[in-house]
Nucleic acid binder design. Structure first.
Lengths: 255, 255
DNA sequence: CGGTGTCTTGAATACCATCAAGTCTTGTGG
DNA sequence: CCACAAGACTTGATGGTATTCAAGACACCG
């Protein structure tokens, strides 16, 4: 709703040429940035490996991509959290996936200019946009890039399938617990988790959890307070602590 | 359950070298078979374009692939219907996608040997299995093949996202109606639909619909009889007729 | 012919949505 | 700095959608 007010600003966001060897990104070595940087580094030898790319900054709650727009770029999140969202005519929303540092918005963007759904920044987000055609052509000459990309594709599909199963066949408690544990896994790979007790930054509002799990915000609140009452997890000050990991895993898996 | 009895037979199914120019498949020109056949045809000139591939036949209700198995092949459905299924520990099942003639089991199999879930034949199924490594290497030299493959990829992701939205945010009536209409779309592309009134072969049991929509067979039955009572669709003798397409579309879209 | 798989129908129940009211925080402009 | 508005979260009451349980009809097959 009022997030739409920000579209103009988002389009006018800083478009600067950023050096690829960026150390700010927690997911730099997870995805395509690293091999792309390697190609860039070796571009003195072969000019053809040069990729046009630009840096962007978007404040929290603003839309990064609208569903109808056409673009010839492939964006990768550098810092912050974002959500890929499908809007329905009746006003309800479904979050298809959360995007973390190092994630490509969607691997399908390598082949298609029309994004599947809109992408909204949850926190302040910095992202890098590669030129699609150039990235695609580099794919053939940089085996490691293809390797990363195919990994991203397999990963993306596995998470989508998991979400389908969760939404189709699991209770509210299970869905929410699994969402948290999946995020924990992904954040751990990025070194964004502190251990014992396990704790990490958690910028999601309850309505984000609701939109991702197919529940209502009211019911999410009830489940979360129940989790807290049982000493499983605690959320406060945009930070999530897992107090009883085995117990929490049990909630997530079984019926 | 007893479908597992068939695994041995499935593995012992006919493995013969089938000519690629197969005219039986309704989806031959939809996916990767056509460009693969083109490569095969021109293989007199360049020996490198040869792909090892084998034909298989599996009877209805048998498992084609188990979730744990490793394979170095990429299977494509030639004739019949199949389902990609995730099994849960409590015994319930979620169908992630229905596979129709011309469909690759999953595009991720081009990069990974571990299938995401098990695949079960709904009708008798004939499928062709390509050698993964050879198919992958051919990808670089056959632009049209890459084109088809990326299309399949984008398509697969779009359908997964759609299913996520349906399971997360839609009622039972909407989910079932959308499932039928999505199948109608896909079958039309394969020339498997007769028009006016719209009618097509429909081998799905109600429990298939239940497993795909995240509902119980009992409730699927109730919704379908309600559809029939309202003169929207009719299912009998493994054939589905759409009696009131506009009305049925209305059920599928709105709240 | 019994057995199995499929579908239907009804009654009772569970899970989650909806509605509503209230607290607390956050942000904004006077 | 305070007043006010908007957003975020909680809690309880009520209701609807879909599940679970149960029983029976029907077709198909060995």
């Amino acid at each position: 709703m009022n997030a739409q007010l920000g579209i103009g600003d988002a389009e006018a966001s800083a478009k600067t040429r950023v050096p690829l060897s960026c150390t700010i990104c927690d997911g730099f070595d997870l995805n395509i940035c690293l091999p792309a940087a390697a190609a860039e580094a070796s571009s003195q030898q072969s000019k053809s490996a040069k990729i046009s790319q630009s840096g962007h900054t978007v404040p929290a709650r603003r839309i990064i991509w609208r569903a109808q727009d056409l673009h010839d770029i492939v964006p990768v999140i550098c810092t912050g959290w974002a959500a890929a969202i499908v809007m329905l005519s009746n006003g309800s929303r479904q979050i298809v996936s959360f995007l973390l540092p190092g994630d490509v918005l969607s691997t399908t963007l390598l082949f298609e200019s029309r994004p599947f759904c809109l992408v909204e920044a949850i926190t302040d987000v910095r992202y890098r946009a590669f030129n699609r055609a150039e990235l695609k052509s580099l794919l053939y000459r940089q085996p490691e890039l293809l390797d990363r990309f195919s990994k991203a594709w397999v990963d993306e599909k596995a998470r989508a399938d998991q979400l389908i199963v969760d939404l189709g066949r699991r209770t509210a408690d299970e869905r929410i617990a699994r969402l948290v544990l999946n995020l924990l896994d992904r954040l751990e790979k990025r070194g964004m988790v502190q251990g014992d007790p396990i704790e990490f930054e958690f910028p999601l509002r309850q309505h984000h959890i609701a939109d991702a799990t197919g529940l209502t915000p009211v019911h999410v609140s009830k489940v979360l307070t129940e989790f807290r009452r049982n000493g499983l997890i605690n959320i406060s000050e945009r930070s999530l602590t897992i107090l009883d990991l085995p117990g929490f895993r049990r909630v997530a898996h079984m019926r």
